[in-house]
Design a protein around this nucleic acid. Sequence first.
DNA 1: GGCAATTGCTTGAATCTTGAACTACATGAT
DNA 2: ATCATGTAGTTCAAGATTCAAGCAATTGCC
Lengths: 177, 177
Amino acid sequence: MTGVSEPALDPETRLHSDHPEALRLWLRIFTCARTVERSVDQLLKREFGSSLARFDVLAQLERAPEGLRMGELSERTLSTNGNATWLVAALGREGLVRRRAAPEDGRAVLVRLTAAGRRHFATMAKRHEAHIVSCFAGLSAGERRTVHSLLGTVKDHLTARRKQPPNDHARDDRTTA
Amino acid sequence: MTGVSEPALDPETRLHSDHPEALRLWLRIFTCARTVERSVDQLLKREFGSSLARFDVLAQLERAPEGLRMGELSERTLSTNGNATWLVAALGREGLVRRRAAPEDGRAVLVRLTAAGRRHFATMAKRHEAHIVSCFAGLSAGERRTVHSLLGTVKDHLTARRKQPPNDHARDDRTTA
DNA sequence: GGCAATTGCTTGAATCTTGAACTACATGAT
DNA sequence: ATCATGTAGTTCAAGATTCAAGCAATTGCC
């Protein structure tokens, strides 16, 4: 007997549908993100001989006029230390970025945009923005805010999770171990 | 007291915030996607000596018991032809996947999971699912459905866009050209 | 049939990314 | 002061990814 409740609220159904739902959501986020990423990357390559990774570094530096340490930079670009070194070296060779020792810590390095870097970024950013706008033109402004806000919750959850990785699925998934 | 209307609804603000809004949304999607991607990739590397890219290939093949052509495969994994060749070669060396000529087209190659591949995938998939569930545990089931559905719209828009790339920003951005 | 254009895939070079080992500086306890 | 420990970045090798060029089978057209 299932009673008067709606199918979706049936406890058994919930247990079964709860998990695949998260999977489906992830798959969709993944698809959208990768599609846009690739189109942006191709755009930046085609029109500026650059790339999404480079653009991302420049964007982070643009927002930090005082410069960023390498560690901060790699954290904000969500990449590794080694990769940040590599990218900054490349951008440095192209004159878009300058490195100097941090005043208060001999180990640290401060990276800043050069004037040329700022100019180059501004050009790319304009094109980039137009592209992004067209990618998300399928949603209304309100819908965009909704997704933005809900993914904000996800982001916070992920950030909290990283600080203290709660063993992933420790409590109710012993059958896997 | 500013009255009943919210600041965000002011017309001038709207005009200005319309574009940056898409940018902010993109930035957030990008952040969430990359964070989850990296954590999944590390998980699969750490526990199975595999990677997200390999997992993705196996997942697509699992869904296609008849096998997939290389082209189909690279399309579904959102990667390039060359990369698909590379990945399938690696998975083939590990015995998880088998290649054979397509019956009706001598140029095409059909890729399928081997029994070992299916087993290996099942193990990883279990772990993977638990991980994903925990990543998105910050949202309620309803919220997950909302995001899933809205991003469905985005996905459709992107798919339509690809078929006939509408020049991106042709109408109102001549100043850039 | 035969030949040009197309299609499906592979190859190779260049680029990018990662993870782990390493250097150099900083800090704190003794 | 000295040493153990920790922290900021770099380096290097291996892996992954892209793009363009190439090859072989197929299709369409005459």
